[in-house]
């Protein structure tokens, strides 16, 4: 963060809100948590002097020192593993994996150590840590800078998985994740880093993990999404409104745990559900949401649950915009549900 921004922040009274981008909100959450709790340390590749390749940690090393904000060797297994070992010893590490596409080398540390240490030790040892990582497409990154691997992690008991889509949630969810007692994978929709802007309180607040948010109220159908697709889901809803269709839009925010109650209440009301994500279709987390909707609301459904997802292909480079579900594809799925 620049000196000007520092001054701007210093000048804001408690309770006051400012317009921040998603990534500014993430940086602010980390700064406040570093200031609040000496157990918080931040590390990863290039997060120190450089401030991270997306500048999420910009200025933090200068402000809090190299002991608390530091660069690591280029090794995701080391980064995640070190976070586990620090958390077991009583720190509150926030580890950055530079791109979600590179979680592979750290995968065993996540699923064998972070996710299981509480269970396997009967609660004697725990790993309260946060792994932040940019994910999703829309930045012309090809398949090693655009993937959405969240479903791998929702499939491993012991991990919590969240993905904000607004600056307000980004700050509140990150703070809640740092203060929680469980390992949290915190996915950051990178195409919204600077595209998503919104009001963010200057003071301290948290957003509870496991709670979704209604972005738009409606009674004709429910659009459910999370992360990078949310602005397009809202655009689709706005387009439908122009045609006289009132879509309710829900942002899950948390995948594990996810807000069954909010989703079921809404779909019980509308009778139609359209699930939107950009992760590949097969074994997509939304398949679980669809399963619970049909299990609980089979006789209230007016149409089959429709899923809009990424295609089951490696994320393409040239066809970036065609691959991603945009407002037209989402709206078309809504029409399909409405016309059933």
């Amino acid at each position: 963060m620049t000196a000007t921004q520092h001054q701007a922040q210093a000048g804001t009274a408690a309770g006051e809100t400012r317009t921040l981008t998603l990534i500014q909100a993430i940086t602010e959450a980390m700064r406040e948590e570093l200031a609040r709790d000496e157990r918080v340390v931040i590390f990863g590749e290039d997060v120190g002097a450089r401030g991270g390749v997306f500048l999420a940690t910009a200025g933090l090393q200068a402000e809090f020192g190299k002991e608390r904000v530091f660069d690591t060797p280029l090794s995701e297994a080391s980064i995640v593993g070190a976070a586990v070992g620090m958390a077991v010893r009583g720190l509150r590490p926030i580890a950055e994996i530079q791109f979600a596409d590179y979680m592979g080398p750290g995968f065993d540390q996540i699923i064998s150590q972070a996710a299981k240490i509480r269970y396997r030790s009967g609660g004697q040892f725990t790993a309260p840590l946060v792994i932040r990582t940019p994910s999703g497409g829309g930045v012309k990154g090809g398949h090693h800078h655009s993937q959405s691997p969240e479903s791998y992690f929702t499939h491993t008991p012991g991990l919590k998985v969240v993905m904000p889509s607004t600056p307000y949630d980004a700050k509140g969810l990150l703070k809640a994740a740092v203060r929680g007692e469980d390992p949290v994978i915190y996915f950051e929709p990178k195409r919204l880093y600077r595209a998503a802007k919104g009001e963010v309180p200057a003071g301290d607040y948290t957003v509870e993990l496991g709670k979704g948010a209604v972005r738009r109220e409606g009674q004709d159908l429910t659009i459910i999404g999370y992360g990078g697709v949310m602005p397009d889901a809202e655009r689709a809803a706005a387009a439908l409104a122009a045609e006289g269709v009132q879509a309710e839009v829900i942002d899950l925010r948390s995948l594990v745990p996810w807000d069954r109650e909010l989703v079921l209440q809404s779909v019980a009301k509308t009778g139609r559900a359209v699930l939107v994500s950009e992760a590949p279709r097969t074994s997509n987390f939304m398949g679980e949401v669809a399963y619970v909707i049909q299990e609980e609301l089979f006789d209230r459904l007016l149409a089959p649950v429709v899923q809009v997802a990424g295609f089951d292909i490696p994320y393409p480079y040239v066809q970036d915009k065609i691959y991603l579900p945009g407002p037209n594809r989402i709206a078309a799925a809504c029409v399909q549900a409405l016309n059933y």
């Binding site: 297994a77 080391s78 995640v80 593993g81 070190a82 976070a83 586990v84 070992g85 620090m86 958390a87 077991v88 010893r89 009583g90 720190l91 590490p93 065993d108 540390q109 064998s112 150590q113 299981k116 240490i117 396997r120 030790s121 004697q124 040892f125």
Partner: peptide, 21 residues
């Protein structure tokens, strides 16, 4: 610390515990 069967998976966490110390 409770043991994991996953061979060598205790090594990076050990480095982390030492870093915390």
């Amino acid at each position: 610390v409770s043991i994991s069967s996953s061979i060598a998976s205790q090594v990076p966490p050990a480095a982390g515990t030492a870093m915390a110390q």
